[in-house]
């Protein structure tokens, strides 16, 4: 049991750090780094649930593959938005992107 709890606590702390980063940073790329950390924490949870609770359920490993896909796509689309922001306004600082509020 202590193995599962240890993995869940590690993931919880990483998620908290990622949330702090995503909320506190003003730069788009740094916000993306926070989101990556949160997704990494969710994957630790999934692998821990697979290994310690349901090692016969490979749909959990499948779910981790989907989470990795989401991480890669988040990076690609995020960098595309950063490229366009840099082209139009010369910066990727979110403080200067108030017009995106709509």
């Amino acid at each position: 049991m202590e193995l599962l709890i240890t993995a869940l606590i590690i993931a919880a702390v990483l998620f908290g750090i990622g949330l702090y980063g995503a909320l506190s940073q003003t730069n788009l790329v740094m916000i993306m780094m926070g989101i990556e950390l949160m997704l990494g924490a969710s994957m630790i949870n999934l692998v821990a649930f697979w290994r310690y609770l349901h090692p016969e359920a490979f749909s959990i490993q499948m779910f981790v593959l989907i989470a990795m896909t989401v991480m890669a796509l988040e990076g690609a689309v995020g960098f595309a938005i950063a490229t366009q922001r840099f082209r139009t306004s010369g910066t990727v600082e979110m403080e200067e992107s108030a017009e995106l509020k709509g």
Partner: peptide
């Protein structure tokens, strides 16, 4: 300085961590 709403962010991070743990 690349931070904003630092105190709220720290509070959110700590509260969420404590809740999950």
């Amino acid at each position: 300085d690349m931070y904003h709403q630092k105190n709220i962010s720290i509070a959110a991070g700590v509260i969420v961590t404590v809740l999950i743990v």
